[in-house]
């Protein structure tokens, strides 16, 4: 019989003060794995520690003894008595533990459902355990399946599709307007933080030119240097808009910097080629009426976050499909492992 337990906490069960105490950085991880592996009742073990979760996957012939060892270790590491900690932790056994790991690896249990990072972290945790001789036959089987299912869910469902942050939502919209970003020119007005992040994202997608406009030219030049772009004076923005395909504004100007008339002129000059305006300013920098002009697409902060919400909804509905895949996989894995680890077979090895 297989006997797997998972003991852990995550962003849903524990506040950050507790999570940070339970987190194991790379150097502490090796040590933790070795000492837990040596403690009584623990046969195999993988320790997954990310900024949102810490989980101990243990295979133990006698579940109670194994878990007791892990609890002891946790008390020690976090410097708190188990009685106080128990409210933050969850324990799953066998089938539930398998299903839990598959959900984690497929990013269903993440704060941002469908994010990609956790899949790599699960892999790393498994490799770390192998490196320290903490993982054996059972964990190979379990994590091998987790990695397989994690990949499968990502390719078979749309769980990772759709931007869920402001800056990626802007990119996603840009890609639904423009066929390619390779030959596009970006004009950024104001050197704000989100603006910078979005341009960074666009730049990594290969936009050809970045133009930066700012009240203080020095700041503009600093930002422009990052993207091998050019810095311009503030009063040149309308002129440069004729060239730019994506305009990103994030200044704290108290009034509209760009009016409807400005854009009308610009559109005539650029022969009605599509223009994507992103207004991250608060108060808004671009007159909302510009969205009515043909081939102009204006999005402000609220519009972008609505896009994110819609995408998140889509991801959650995909998560339901993923759950069905995972449930099937967990079922068959449990059957397989129970068959492989029948007592007569294990005693022989």
């Amino acid at each position: 019989m297989m006997n797997i337990r998972v003991l852990g906490l995550n962003h849903k069960t524990a506040p950050i003060e507790i999570r940070e105490r339970a987190s194991f950085s790379n150097s502490r991880l090796d040590e933790a794995l070795r000492s837990l592996r040596a403690s009584p009742g623990v046969e195999e073990l993988v320790l997954l520690s990310t900024c949102n979760r810490t989980e101990f996957y243990v295979s133990c012939p006698q579940a109670d003894r194994g878990l007791a060892s892990v609890w002891e270790f946790v008390e020690d590491a976090m410097g708190m008595p188990a009685a106080k900690l128990k409210q933050y932790f969850y324990v799953h056994g066998n089938r539930d533990a398998v299903e839990h790991l598959l959900c984690v690896a497929a990013s269903l249990d993440s704060m941002v459902v469908g994010e990609t990072q956790v899949f790599g972290q699960v892999k790393d945790a498994y490799f770390a355990a192998r490196r320290n001789n903490a993982a054996g036959k059972v964990m190979d089987c379990l994590f091998g399946e987790a990695i397989r299912v994690g990949k499968k869910v990502r390719t078979d469902t749309q769980i990772g599709k759709g931007a869920v942050s402001t800056s990626t939502a802007a990119i996603e919209l840009a890609r639904k307007i423009f066929e390619t970003l390779q030959d596009k020119v970006v004009l950024i007005i104001g050197a704000g933080k989100i603006g910078e992040l979005t341009v960074k994202n666009l730049y990594s997608r290969g936009v050809s030119t970045v133009i930066v406009a700012n009240r203080t030219l020095v700041k503009a030049q600093d930002l422009a240097r990052q993207f091998c772009g050019t810095a311009i004076h503030f009063d040149g923005i309308i002129e440069h808009m004729c060239r730019a395909d994506i305009v990103l504004s994030s200044t704290s100007a108290p009034h509209f910097l760009v009016t409807r008339e400005d854009i009308c002129t610009v559109m005539r000059m650029r022969n009605n080629a599509p223009l994507f305006l992103i207004d991250l300013g608060l108060p808004r920098n671009i007159d909302p009426a510009t969205n009515d002009i043909a081939n102009v697409y204006l999005y402000n902060i609220d519009d972008l976050s609505r896009v994110c919400d819609a995408n998140m909804k889509e991801r959650l509905s995909e998560a339901k499909k993923a759950r069905a895949v995972i449930s099937r996989a967990a079922e068959s894995l449990c059957e397989r492992m129970n068959a492989d680890l029948r007592p007569d077979k294990v005693s022989a090895s």
């Binding site: 749309q158 639904k176 066929e179 889509e314």
Partner: peptide, 13 residues
């Protein structure tokens, strides 16, 4: 942003 949004190609195309 509806289900069609993700499935239809970019408008420039």
């Amino acid at each position: 942003i509806d289900a069609f949004f993700f499935r239809l190609p970019p408008i420039e195309f």
